[in-house]
Design a protein around this nucleic acid. Structure first.
Length: 421
RNA sequence: GUGGGCGUAGCUCAAAGGUAGAGCACUUGACUGUGGCUCAAGUGGUUGGGGGUUCGAAUCCCCUCGCCCACCCCA
């Protein structure tokens, strides 16, 4: 073998396509139900867009982007997340129109690229189904995004999805919180891991999700962001919780949900599912009220979600959700003997022209082999053409499920099958 | 980026220094023109790749690539 697939990326082969198409179709259907419209943005953007939107200090920007120069020395980057390109397209095409308060609801299904060490459920190219609601500050919209996501998981038979919920505050209250957090940590700083010592200055919020034992202990008594939200953020969070209660959506408050993208404000959430090992997050999102302004637009509040399709499908498999058997359909043209071959080819073309899925065995093997092939291909009918049939202008039509067969006129075959299939 | 486990037929796996195998799948036949069940025969391998040790390597050593697991990160 001369060439192998690059590390960390996958082929999606015919036997997996049904699961993918089901997931994609369900997501699209739900988005239409919730009045979100599809956008398709390029797989690469100016590098600066992601650096600015996601944040220079994040792992995604610092070490996980596929960045390259084109032939004119422009720095471009393969999309490492879905929100920034949508925001760019929203601004560039003035999707808000003349109404500055207009709520623009968009969705996408797109490949995402991150140079990470591959692992089960973690790939260098994966696919996200995402939804963004741009233009509304209302917590009910956060709830809508969450509900849409949960409906999607439910539509795929995923029953044990847990919603983890947090608020990461806003530019008003977060600095106060960070000051309090650092004040708590400072006396213990030299006991903490080297990563945390670096984060202390670079990105103190990230201290919260350190998995190191000693760091965790020190952080256990640390103040919680949730206790220090400003009035506006606290009301937003309370209203969101009330709305979720109203909609019978269960959630676990988890103050350690921080998210790896700097643009989040207020609501941050994550969906976790069993069966994935340590990569158990199948989706996540939150509010990003500052991002549109950061990208050069007017102050515009927004909220969104990204769902990992590979992980969702792994969770679906782990949960033992059976894929529906493809229905038997199609006609297999069986020819017997040399004179029947051209007649079979003509019949094959006629069937296809009439919109009936049809196949033939180009290897011209024994009847036995042709029927076995037809069975393996999942055909519902076999149309058998031999000397007898040609002489009498008929075809032997065999039902591949029941095994019954009878002789019918060639001129009636298409009408008969069209009625049945 | 760090540490560990594993790479043998299309698939799932044996063979622990001495002839590379089994089951499933596939092909053909038993059944001159009828699939699924049964039986029989057959096809199929640079043992991930490269180098080394040895009379002899799937097996031991080194390098490399890939997958998996944990850290990390996140979808």
């Amino acid at each position: 073998m001369l060439y192998r697939i690059p590390r960390g990326v996958n082929d999606i082969l015919p036997d997996q396509i049904a699961a993918w198409q089901q997931a994609e179709a369900n997501f699209q259907k739900l988005c239409r139900l919730y009045n979100y419209e599809e956008v398709r943005t390029p797989i690469f953007e100016q590098t600066e867009l992601f650096v600015r939107a996601v944040g220079e200090d994040t792992d995604i920007v610092a070490k996980e982007m596929y960045t390259f120069e084109d032939r004119s020395a422009r720095s471009l980057t393969l999309r490492p997340e879905g929100t920034a390109p949508v925001v760019r397209a929203y601004l560039e095409n003035s999707l808000q129109g003349q109404d500055p308060d207009r709520l623009v609801k968009l969705y996408y299904i797109a490949p995402i690229f991150r140079y990470d060490r591959p692992q089960a459920g973690r790939y260098r190219q994966h696919h996200q189904a995402g939804a963004e609601a741009i233009g509304s500050p209302e917590p009910e919209v956060d709830a809508e995004i969450i509900q849409l996501s949960l409906d999607f998981f439910a539509s795929l038979g995923l029953k044990e999805v847990t919603l983890l919920l947090n608020s990461v505050g806003c530019p008003q209250c977060r600095p106060t919180y960070i000051k309090a957090l650092k004040r708590h940590i400072e006396p213990h700083l030299d006991e903490m891991c080297s990563d945390c010592q670096r984060r202390y200055d670079a990105n103190p919020l990230r201290l919260l999700d350190c998995k190191n034992q000693t760091c965790r202990q020190i952080l256990e008594q640390a103040p919680s962001m949730l206790d220090m939200l400003c009035e506006e953020c606290a009301v937003h969070f309370d209203t969101l919780k009330q709305t979720l209660d109203l909609l019978d959506i269960a959630y676990n408050i988890d103050p350690h949900i921080v998210r790896g993208l700097d643009y989040y404000t207020k609501t941050a959430f994550e969906f976790v599912a069993p069966g994935l090992g340590t990569q158990d997050s199948i989706g996540g999102g939150g509010r990003y009220d500052g991002l549109i302004e950061e990208c050069g637009g007017p102050p515009t509040p927004a909220v969104g979600v990204g769902i990992g399709l590979e992980r969702t499908l792994i969770a679906q498999e782990a949960a033992g959700v059976a894929q529906p058997e493809p229905a038997r359909e199609g006609v297999f043209v069986v020819t017997i003997g040399a004179p029947a071959w051209p007649e079979g080819l003509k019949l094959l073309a006629q069937l296809r022209a009439a919109g009936l899925p049809a196949e033939i065995d180009y290897r011209r093997r024994s009847v036995r082999a042709q029927l076995r092939y037809a069975d393996g291909e999942g055909c519902r009918w076999a149309a058998i053409l031999g000397e007898d049939e040609i002489r009498s202008q008929t075809v032997t039509l065999r039902n591949m499920v029941s095994g019954e067969q009878d002789s019918i006129r060639q001129s009636e075959l298409i009408d008969r099958l069209s009625a049945e299939l």
